[in-house]
Design a protein around this nucleic acid. Sequence first.
DNA 1: CCATATTTTTAGATTAAATCTAATTATAGA
DNA 2: TCTATAATTAGATTTAATCTAAAAATATGG
Lengths: 145, 145
Amino acid sequence: MAEPRNRCLSPQEISRRLERHGVQPTAQRIAICQYVLCEAEHPTADDIKQWADKNFPKMSRATVYNTVNTLIEAGLLREFRFPHDSKTVYDDNISDHYHFLDETTGEIIDIDGKDIEIKLRNEQRFIVKNAEVLLRGKLVKKKGV
Amino acid sequence: MAEPRNRCLSPQEISRRLERHGVQPTAQRIAICQYVLCEAEHPTADDIKQWADKNFPKMSRATVYNTVNTLIEAGLLREFRFPHDSKTVYDDNISDHYHFLDETTGEIIDIDGKDIEIKLRNEQRFIVKNAEVLLRGKLVKKKGV
DNA sequence: CCATATTTTTAGATTAAATCTAATTATAGA
DNA sequence: TCTATAATTAGATTTAATCTAAAAATATGG
Ligand SMILES: [Mn+2]
Ligand SMILES: [Mn+2]
Ligand SMILES: [Zn+2]
Ligand SMILES: [Zn+2]
């Protein structure tokens, strides 16, 4: 059962991390990373833009898209498109993993790759390179504190 | 291993089937059904429009969308949106099933619901109502004729 | 530090899938 | 046949994402 990753990063740590991945650490990029790597969970481009409008002097929509695509190329971010919504979401979880959609809240929750096993029967035709899985349903409230 | 369904339907059969599902069998609807229920495999709205432009005197884009959405409401069709492409595809296979994407050709192939087993481990949090699965990889050529 | 090449950011235009609008046409039923 | 209802239509609109090309920021190296 995966524990949440440590998502706390200072601007300096973000800056170093960008440089290590060959990405110039501009003010806009550091700000966006603060949000997508530290605060947000599966944000859309629009989420990022709205956050930037509150927390950054001025940022254009193009910069949001430029930046997430740069981060994806650099291997710091992944993008996912799900069947239930037309907006791409961005994910700092770059490991192999799947997703669960809580249909009552719309929340998307990561499922570790190791925690799902997909068995394909009666099929000789396919060489499967990877799988994309979205489970849908209801999230159970944990009892106790 | 699922055999292909019989997809051959005369205009009369289509007409009766539409009526049974409470859909007025107009010329446009019958034509679109001819294509989506009999000829095509996971066509997009654009595929349907292009087919109509060749095989029907005149049909507007709005009618293509109106019709597929009517057919979906009537339970004769399903729609799917996949992560690798922004276009919705329409599917006459209305049973529970998953999909395989041949990454070399772009072809989408049905996988019977019974032929995939999804096991979720170490997770007490989710009540899973349904799953959407896209396997990606390469299609193996069958040897022999 | 300065000059200049390179990279990044930007506002606004463009694209593409899907939906909407409101006028016209077709169909159903009395 | 007459009339109400339903379906179709061309074109406008919406929305997510990309593109354009000018301006601003940054890196380089003398
Ligand atoms: Mn995540
Ligand atoms: Mn199918
Ligand atoms: Zn995720
Ligand atoms: Zn299918």
